[in-house]
């Protein structure tokens, strides 16, 4: 997946790729960053294969399902991700420590509502590391919460038939003991 990771410093790679969000904002990002978004990479590769001769023309890639706000955050996250990787190319452990530290700091500035936007965007862009990271964050945000909180948080509704939910709650009564108030 990271064929282009040879570039030691991602910010110095020359090719730029232009991304256009659903709210018509245009982002110009380094190729190394854009290639972490598998959806973009796939589109980009397809385009290149279709017109081999066009070479390094600046391509505009539309992202009809991503808004500018989460995309900006994802790009920042991705840049930092690549930077940490490049800085610790020969020390995996150091890299993990740096990454963990960065991610912890990163989450301090992210609101729960943003987290859901980021998950949707990361999923659409098929940016696996970010999707995993944000899902981990959501998991730790909801693990102490009640069923009602989770429904409200994600806009879900109970579709159980009358009695079904009560039966489940009875069967798993132990898992409802000691839950945070919403």
């Amino acid at each position: 997946m990271s064929n282009q990771s040879e570039s030691p410093n991602p910010t110095s790679s020359s090719n730029k790729i232009t991304l256009k969000t659903s709210d018509n904002e245009v982002f110009e990002v380094e190729e190394a960053v854009a290639m972490k978004f598998c959806t973009v990479k796939q589109y980009f590769d397809d385009e290149n294969n279709n017109n081999v001769t066009s070479g390094t023309s600046t391509t505009l890639i539309p992202l009809p399902n991503v808004e500018s706000h989460p995309l900006a955050i994802l790009i920042t996250y991705c840049k930092k991700h690549l930077e940490i990787k490049a800085n610790n190319a020969d020390n995996k452990k150091e890299m993990e420590i740096d990454m963990e530290h960065y991610e912890r700091e990163f989450l301090k500035n992210v609101m729960p509502q943003e987290l859901t936007e980021l998950i949707l965007a990361a999923n659409y862009l098929n940016f696996k590391e970010a999707l995993d990271f944000f899902c981990r964050a959501v998991a730790s945000a909801i693990q102490n919460k009640s069923v009602e909180y989770v429904r409200k948080f994600f806009g879900l509704e109970s579709d159980f038939k009358p009695g079904e939910e009560e039966k489940l709650r009875e069967e798993f009564a132990w898992s409802f003991e000691g839950v945070d108030e919403d």
Binding site: N123, L131, V147, S175
Partner: peptide, 21 residues
């Protein structure tokens, strides 16, 4: 969240969330 975040939860939370939908 169901597909990607639930696996990061401990078993007790997961069993509770069976009642979500």
């Amino acid at each position: 969240v169901k597909d990607h975040a639930l696996p990061f939860l401990p078993a007790k939370s997961i069993c509770r969330f069976r009642s979500v939908s």
